[in-house]
Each structure stands twice: as structure tokens, then as C-alpha cells.
Design a protein around this nucleic acid. Structure first.
Length: 421
RNA sequence: GUGAACGUAGCUCAGUCGGUAGAGCUCCUGGUUGUGGUCCAGGCGGUCGUGGGUUCGAGUCCCAUCGUUCACCCCA
């Protein structure tokens, strides 16, 4: 054997048991997106680097130190998609979708790439399910996206989920608040550690998220954005909360909620789950009313969310691994090459008719084939050996009861199709 | 990027004072001349993460490196 090559740091293989669970997650999301009127979109895995620099923001950790950026053979700077909103907005602008009936509502599931220090629930490649609604600033649309994401978690039965919601304001009131916060932080600079002072210059609101007791003590007395919202943003915020109340969605209003992307305005929200190890966020999003214009489109409001499939899997499997998915309804046990050859066309036609079927292909012993049949989760087993071949029949075994009955070979297909579709 | 703990069979782990690597589970075969989920017996499976060093001798001690996990940071 040659030296082993392993998956790159921070990446992982999804094996079939988890694959079945992930298919269920995407399936649940997909049918809810249908119900809410969201159409599916797919964008390239890599984009021109400039898209993320302009869209996500220079001051974000993503752009400053987490992007997989490379020059292609033509000397163009490309970046593996680190987040989903900027590419969707780029496609919206590129295809003139602002001329479609608004709002344009889109969803996607796609891998994201960030150069991070991996740990449980944090990888260098992860998969998000996301949605964006573009072209309306109605607070009901914010509430709709929150309800939609909550419905996905409910449909999957994820335990321990909570919703935090806040607002970042917009326009002059947001700038005024930022100036006030910076002034406050400067007045308390002596009480802040050096790295916190540095971060204060880039994105002062981030300090609300710090777990450092010294920082937390300073932030305790800091002005809160929710007390400084302009009239428009304040009304918007109240309307979103009212809509959530009206549909019975519980939330914690949180003036310190910060998200890591520069484009958010007004509503920001985050769903947390208590079973994610060191991480707590399972999904989040918010409104981004300036992003479309920033990326060269007409002024267009937008709101969206992203949620991590790997974190959903973590939350769902915290109490134990998901059971393996059944791999077949019918198992074909042919004794000897002739019998296996006889069964092959029957099995092929049955599969075409939609019956999941599998067969021994290793020439196992009868005992071995029965074990395989049980392990495959098959409900029935077709046994064909010399005795059956001589009589033109097959033995049909019910795997749960162990009962067996003869079925003429000519009727095998129709009997199986009737009982096992 | 910084700090810490941990890397032994496909999986979960044991391995004493440094003395030439083990268990359970899984898988395969047999007990049962053609019948599964129990039982019994046997078998397959290991460059002890990797590379150096110390030593007569290293899974065990030392150094480096890679990976995982945890904390910081940040996020899905």
C-alpha cells in the first residue's frame, strides 16, 4: 500500500448514514420553500474576489483573513464562495431580476469555504441552506423569513432552539449611534484590553459579543442601538416583533446582537441551539437594504437568512447517531450463478418500477445471504435455488415474520410490484 | 493566528517499571449438506498519526510536524 492521502484540514466526508439525514434536511427545507413561494437558485462555487470584498465588507473577518483566494491561469483573482448572499445579489443584478414581479424570493443550498481554525461545528467547508427576498422593505417579509427558518427547525424536530432578534438601525441614526458608541469606548479605553481597543476601531458593536469580563463590564454601560433607532427603523422593528407575536413565535429581543457581515441594516436575527458544543448559532440573517446598490444594481431592499447543515446534523445527532437508512425493500438471494442470472432481469425491471431492490453478488452462503437481507432492511427476500428452478417458482420470504410461500416465476414481478412499491 | 489536551485494528478502547501489541463491536467462514436478527468456535484486520532522537531495546521517554478536540477569536 502507498502512503495515505487524507481529507484536507477542516473538511470531512459525508458517509451514507449521514447522507440520508442530510437529504431529509434539504427535503424538509425544500417543501417549506415551495409553501412560502421561494424559487431555487444556484450560483458558481467561485466568484471574482471583488464581489466579496465589496459585498461582504473590508472590515469583516471573512474578507480580512478567511477567504480561499487564488489567481486562475488567466491571472484573474478568484475566491471560493465564503457566504451565500453576495453571489445571489450579484445574480439578481446580472439578470435584471429587479424587473421581475417583486419581491423576488430565492433559496439555495451550497458549500461555503472559509479558512478557519476548525473545531466541532466549525469547518473550512460547510454547507448552508439560505434564502433571500429582494425588492420589498415590508417588515412582514422579515417576519416571513424568520417564520420560514423556524418552520424548518420545527419540521426537523431540532430540540433546544431559541431566537434572538435585534436591529442595527439605518441611515443617519445608525451613523450617529456608531459615533456615540465609539466616543463612549474612547472614554473607557483605559479599562479595555489592547485587542478590544483595536476591534473597537473596526467594528465597535462586535465588543458586545465579547466573553472577556473586562470588556463585558465596559459594555454594560454602553449606549444601546435599540434606544437610538430612527423613527423608520424603530417602526420597522416594532412591526417585525408584532408580526412574530401574531403567529406565536417566541423570541428574545437583544440589543447587543451583532452579525459578522457589514451589509446588514435594521433587522438582524439569530437562532441558537444548546447542543452544538462550542458553537451556539445554528442559523441567522437579517435585512440588507444597501447591498444591491453596492453591487451595481438599482436601490433595492433585501432580507435573508443562512443556516448550516452540519450544525443541524450536530443538533439532531447529539443524542446518538441517526439510524442507518434501509437500502432495499426486496433482497434477491440466488443460489449459484444460474439462479443469480435468472433473477437479474426481474430485479432490473422491478427497480425500474420503483421498488428498491438489491442482491447478493458475492456468491455467499444461504446463511450469509439471510444476514445480508436482514442488514439491508429488506421487507422481503426472494430465494431462488436448484429446487425452485426445477419447478419454475421462487420462494418469497417475509423478513419480519419468516413466513415463506412459493410464487411462480412468471408472476414474481407483478406480485413484488404489488406488495412493495 | 495564539494557548492547552489528545492521536493504538473499520469503530469504541486497554496496554503496568521501556522488553518485540490486546479486548469488545463490525465483517467473513463453520457448527446448521439451502434460511437472518440468539449462541459457540475460528478467521480477516496494525508502518501504535508521521519524521527524527535517547537506548542493547520505544506504543511507552525527548524534539519536531500533521490531525482532532477545547479555549481565545469568529461564525453556519
Amino acid at each position: 500500500m502507498s502512503a495515505k492521502v487524507e481529507a484536507p484540514k477542516g473538511t470531512r466526508d459525508v458517509l451514507p448514514d449521514e447522507g440520508a439525514l442530510r437529504a431529509r434536511i434539504v427535503g424538509a427545507a425544500s417543501s417549506l420553500f415551495d409553501a412560502y413561494g421561494y424559487g431555487r437558485i444556484a450560483t458558481p462555487t467561485f466568484e471574482q474576489t471583488e464581489l466579496f470584498v465589496r459585498g461582504v465588507g473590508q472590515s469583516t473577518d471573512i474578507v480580512r483573513k478567511e477567504m480561499y483566494t487564488f489567481d486562475d491561469l488567466g491571472g484573474r483573482s478568484m475566491t471560493l464562495r465564503p457566504e451565500g448572499t453576495a453571489p445571489v445579489v450579484r445574480a439578481f443584478v446580472e439578470h435584471g431580476m429587479h424587473k421581475l414581479p417583486l419581491p423576488v424570493k430565492l433559496w439555495y443550498t451550497a458549500p461555503m469555504f472559509r479558512y478557519e481554525a476548525p473545531q466541532a461545528g466549525r469547518l473550512r467547508e460547510h454547507t448552508q441552506i439560505g434564502a433571500e427576498a429582494l425588492g420589498a422593505d415590508d417588515p412582514l417579509l422579515d417576519a416571513e423569513l424568520i417564520a420560514l427558518l423556524g418552520a424548518i427547525y420545527d419540521a426537523l424536530g431540532i430540540p433546544g432552539v431559541r431566537l434572538r432578534i435585534g436591529s442595527l438601525g439605518d441611515g443617519p441614526s445608525r451613523a450617529a449611534y456608531r459615533a456615540e458608541l465609539v466616543a463612549y469606548l474612547n472614554s473607557r479605553a483605559a479599562d479595555l484590553p489592547a485587542d478590544a481597543r483595536e476591534r473597537a476601531g473596526e467594528n465597535p458593536m462586535r465588543l458586545f459579543d465579547s466573553r472577556d469580563p473586562a470588556v463585558a463590564a465596559v459594555m454594560e454601560g454602553a449606549p444601546r442601538i435599540l434606544d437610538r433607532l430612527g423613527d423608520d427603523a424603530a417602526a420597522h422593528h416594532r412591526a417585525v416583533l408584532g408580526a412574530l407575536d401574531a403567529v406565536g413565535i417566541a423570541y428574545d429581543e437583544d440589543a447587543t446582537l451583532v452579525r459578522g457581515l457589514d451589509y446588514y441594516t435594521k433587522t438582524v436575527f439569530e437562532f441558537t441551539c444548546d447542543r452544538l458544543g462550542a458553537q451556539s448559532g445554528i442559523g441567522g440573517g437579517g435585512r440588507y437594504d444597501g447591498l444591491v446598490e453596492e453591487l451595481g444594481g438599482p436601490p433595492t431592499p433585501g432580507v435573508g437568512f443562512g443556516t448550516g447543515i452540519e450544525r443541524i446534523v450536530l443538533a439532531l445527532t447529539a443524542d446518538g447517531a441517526p439510524g442507518p437508512a434501509p437500502t432495499a425493500r426486496v433482497y434477491f438471494a440466488g443460489i449459484g450463478p444460474e439462479a443469480r442470472a435468472e433473477l437479474f432481469p426481474v430485479m432490473t425491471r422491478l427497480r425500474a418500477a420503483g421498488v428498491a431492490a438489491t442482491a447478493d453478488t458475492l456468491g455467499r452462503s444461504m446463511k450469509g445471504m439471510m444476514k445480508q437481507a436482514a442488514a439491508s432492511g429488506a421487507a422481503a427476500c426472494v430465494i431462488l435455488g436448484e429446487r425452485e428452478l426445477a419447478e419454475g417458482i421462487a420462494t418469497l420470504r417475509d423478513m419480519s415474520t419468516g413466513e415463506q410461500r412459493p410464487v411462480p416465476l412468471s408472476e414474481l414481478e407483478s406480485v413484488l410490484a404489488k406488495e412493495h412499491v
